[in-house]
Design a binder for these strands. Structure first.
Length: 872
RNA sequence: GCGGGCGUGGCGGAACCGGUAGACGCAGCGGACUUAAAAUCCGCAGGGCGCAAGCCCGUGAGGGUUCGACUCCCUCCGCCCGCACCA
């Protein structure tokens, strides 16, 4: 008989804080080096301290926490740290809008969000916490930058940037909307500024090759990175140029091509509007100058590029065809030729390149096919509106190409390159789309770049002993622009070399630098070097990295680059920081609008019999599509409200159920209610079983019910173990549901006073159940564990092992098919001989009916699964 | 245009290596308990025909391989994501 005062209902608001405290005190999440256990480093992408945790965080960190808790139980020494990606523009925006200092705003947010993460019960090692805006963190970033400079991995280049003349700052491409600054609305200008660049291109080939080894990364991400790096093989060669009088231009013109095989089809040469020759010619030719202006005004927005017509302007030059000196190709400046790729100049072969074809048609240039399908006679080979761009197909052959005629395009490529090399005017060349990484930002809330500009000595590195270069705190945000520039004293320093007056660099680093090495810092967060190599050698690489797909290129590529640069400067020992990557799906929610088209938040929507209504105004509400939670569409569910109402375990359980973690999950009230009911149901079940008196030793003879339950429990354990390993949490949860159903049924069968054997099985199953869901619902698990009278924390208990003998069955159910159609099923002994199974199958009534009047031709037996009788 | 992925009940999704399609959950329906409701518990549930036993159809469409296909191959349709004047 249960005690009267026992809580009927599980109350997370009381239970959860209690266990969170217990975990803290027991140091459950503490990771220590020097353990003889194998290590496991699980990391989720650290958050930007925007103010509050959102559902995406809940999903991300729940996935990681399940894995961390599971691996700990499996006997791993687990590193599961958390920190803050704390530099960035929102802090400055808050400063401008609300008058708070970015630092205060950031640290307040961190404090608040840390509390939220704790209330969600994540087993994080907070002793390793840091924020990237801590000078203790960024001073190491500055030191490494100096080392990168010494290693030749840093360059200062002029670069075209988006300049907002009102806010007086550089904007990222994403911050330019329809040619205007997203905050100021001012027309953005293109400015050429001196910027710091990290030479990521130095590792282009290695970053590409490294992808092949990352067998635990999603193919999708690797493909995106491959495309981004954009390796292409071709040739670089030069054209001789002559002017209209036939006078030789002083310099030959280099071009890059991936299709040297099509050289005989060339009908023009085109330069980028930004090409030095174009600019030079524009000095004396207003038409060219006007064209350059036009192209610059068009901007670089994707939309503009997409819509832009192929356009060009004739330059007063001809290019001499390298293989046919008598042929002079007209030279144009064309808007589709990019200065930033290859040599900023191309030869146009309209027959085999769509852009060239469009251009040729517009300007009436010849279209000479040089590649032709084998079964088409050369004279019939014509190009309409579409260029023939294939070159890999084997059924293609070169035509109109002098000595290359008859070759395949592949052979012709080789032949053309050989010829260009022989002539001494070109060579084989690999090109990459990847550009160097511009890291200068004209912002305050970022890591200061540790260099000094001296009028005498030029660029001078800040001596390492003077690091960190810290941000001044007495800055104002009442004017646009970078407060570091107008700070009265900060930038004025003596040159470390000559002692004369000099100025600090006032740009700060792109915040992507901060997140490019934080994973390594977690190994030794308090070390006085960027990374303690001994510790990094123990913990790195990250065994499982988890985060959103939106970082597929930027963050993940920068991190891979940084690891390489750190390795080459002695700060790390490996090139690939993340051994396994998991990209989670988004949390989505239905959207709601009033009839007048205003977005309505879910909390204000009331579900009535005949539809949806506004809780306050009573207006009709129309449900819209299910979309990513976003403030603008108001379809946001605040995790804090969920935790308050249902507790962390319910939130965690729901977000893990139903949808596989890589897919989007729809947050629904009904789904959360379901999870909540399950939490209560488990609690009631454990509560009842705790009252059953059970033997501690397994009774010798187990009845059918007890044996069946033991089998169910151990089979579930085996399945759940596999599913967690594979991050198939939704399936693991389904198995756990099944086990709960099985235990409930067994408990009902046993009545209030089950026999000894069943009592033992019930207890065993209950304990296994609790251990299985502990990584997902850790608080409930501890409470149940205690209720079952077990000592210690589940969080510190080893993962149970399934008993092998219980996983096997004495008899198996086999389906019986006739001609591939299932007719019946039968129970046969596990290792019944083949003949026995065939005989039994043929005896089945349903089989007899199905084969009546037919001849049995063949019987296929798949042991333990099916029998298929082929009859005709 | 190029690249990647995905199409399974009303919904989210299961299905090991080619072997009983639809586990589990949500929503739904019926019943028990209750004065009533909530909660809880029991049961039903892909579609069609049938009183039933049972039979037929069924994993986007069509074809192929196979004793057997959600799974492998080909063609097509649809959706999602990424990249995109990259020579």
């Amino acid at each position: 008989m249960a005690a009267m005062n026992k809580p009927k209902r599980y109350s997370p608001e009381e239970v959860e804080p209690k266990w969170q405290k217990a975990w803290d005190e027991a140091g459950v999440a503490r990771a220590e080096e020097g353990s003889d256990k194998p290590k496991f480093y699980v990391l989720e992408m650290f958050p930007y301290p925007s103010g509050r945790i959102h559902m995406g965080h809940v999903r991300n960190y729940t996935l990681g926490d399940v894995l961390a808790r599971y691996k700990r139980a499996q006997g791993f020494n687990v590193l599961h740290p958390m920190g803050w990606d704390a530099f960035g523009m929102p802090a400055e925006n808050a400063a401008m809008q609300k008058g708070v200092h970015p630092k205060a705003w950031t640290y307040d947010n961190i404090a608040y969000m840390k509390g939220q993460l704790k209330r969600l019960g994540f087993s994080l090692d907070w002793s390793r916490e840091f924020a990237t805006c801590d000078p203790e963190y960024y001073k190491h970033e500055q030191a490494m930058f100096l080392d990168f400079m010494d290693a030749g991995l840093v360059e200062r280049q002029k670069a075209l940037v988006n300049w907002d003349p009102v806010d007086q700052t550089v904007l990222a491409n994403e911050q330019v909307i329809d040619g205007r600054g997203w905050r100021s609305g001012a027309l953005v200008e293109k400015r050429e500024l001196d910027q710091w660049f990290l030479k990521i291109t130095h590792y282009a080939e290695d970053l590409l090759k490294g992808l092949d080894e990352l067998d635990k990364w999603p193919e999708k991400v690797k493909v995106m990175q491959r495309n981004w790096i954009g390796r292409s093989e071709g040739a670089r060669f030069t054209f001789r140029l002559v002017d209209e009088q036939g006078k030789e231009w002083p310099e030959p013109l280099p071009v890059y091509t991936t299709r040297p095989d099509t050289l005989f089809g060339a009908s023009f040469v085109a330069l980028s509007p930004d090409h030095p020759i174009t600019k030079k010619l524009a000095e004396n030719d207003p038409a060219i100058a006007e064209f350059i202006r036009e192209c610059a005004a068009l901007g670089t927005s994707e939309e503009a590029i997409e819509k832009a017509e192929k356009k060009g302007v004739r330059l007063p030059l001809y290019a001499i065809h390298p293989f046919r000196p008598e042929v002079k190709l007209p030279v144009y400046a064309a808007n589709f030729v990019l200065m930033t790729y290859g040599e900023g100049a191309i030869f146009g072969c309209p027959a085999h390149d769509q852009r060239d074809l469009d251009f040729a048609r517009k300007y009436g240039l010849p279209v000479i096919p040089v590649v032709c399908p084998k079964d088409t006679p050369p004279e019939k080979c014509e190009i309409g509106d579409e260029a023939l761009t294939d070159s890999e197909r084997d059924d293609l052959v070169m035509i109109n190409s002098d000595w290359m005629n008859g070759m395949t395009p592949k052979e012709a490529k080789e032949a053309a390159i050989a010829k260009l090399e022989e002539m001494g005017i070109g060579e084989r060349k690999v090109n990459y789309r990847l550009r160097d990484w511009g890291v200068s930002r004209q912002r305050y809330w970022g890591c200061p770049i540790p260099v000094i500009h001296c009028p005498e000595c030029g660029i001078v590195k800040v001596p390492k002993e003077d690091l960190p270069v810290t941000l001044p705190e007495d800055v104002t945000f009442d004017e646009p622009g970078n407060p570091l520039v107008r700070h009265p004293t900060w930038k004025h320093v003596k040159c470390p070399q000559c002692g004369g007056d000099a100025e600090r660099e006032t740009d700060t680093f792109d915040t992507f630098i901060d997140s490019s090495w934080y994973y390594a810092r977690f190994c030794s967060p308090h070390a006085d070097v960027p990374v303690d190599l001994e510790k990094a050698k123990y913990w790195m690489p990250v065994d499982q990295y988890i985060g959103g797909i939106e970082h597929a290129i930027l963050h993940l590529l920068y991190s891979r680059f940084f690891a390489r640069a750190m390795k080459d400067t002695g700060h790390l020992h490996l090139k690939e920081p993340f051994a396994a990557l998991f990209t989670q799906g988004m949390v989505v929610h239905e959207t709601y609008k009033t009839e007048s088209g205003e977005w309505v938040e879910p909390a204000l929507v009331e579900r009535r019999e005949d539809g949806l209504y506004h809780r306050e105004t009573g207006e009709r509400i129309i449900a819209g599509p299910v979309e990513k939670m976003s403030k603008s569409k108001k379809n946001v569910i605040d995790p804090e409200a969920i935790v308050e109402k249902y507790g962390a375990d319910t939130a965690r359980w729901f977000i893990l159920s139903d949808s596989p973690p890589e897919r989007d999950i729809e947050w629904t009230e009904a789904g959360v209610e379901g999870a909540w009911r399950f939490v209560q149901r488990v609690w009631r079940l454990i509560d009842e079983i705790a009252d059953v008196t059970a033997p501690t030793e397994r009774p010798d003879n187990l009845g059918d019910d007890a044996l069946a339950l033991r089998r169910a429990a151990h089979r579930t354990l085996a399945a759940v173990t596999k599913d967690i390993e594979a991050l198939r949490f939704n399936v693991a949860i389904a198995r756990i549901h099944e086990l709960v159903n099985a235990i409930s049924q067994a408990l009902r069968k046993g009545g209030g006073n089950p026999p000894e054997d069943l009592a033992f099985a019930l207890r065993e199953a209950a304990e296994l159940l609790v251990q299985m869901f502990a990584p997902m619902m850790p608080h409930l698990a501890e409470e149940c564990w205690q209720r079952l009278g077990r000592q210690g924390l589940v969080a510190q208990t080893s993962w149970p092992r399934a008993e092998e003998t219980l996983l096997q069955q004495d008899t198996v159910k086999m389906a019986v098919q006739v001609n591939g159609k299932r007719r019946t099923e039968m129970e046969v002994p596990k290792d019944a001989p083949r003949e026995e199974i065939e005989k039994l199958a043929l005896q089945q009534d349903a089989v007899q009916r199905a084969i009546a009047g037919k001849q049995v031709r063949r019987i296929i037996v798949v042991p333990g699964r099916i029998v298929n009788i082929v009859a005709s």
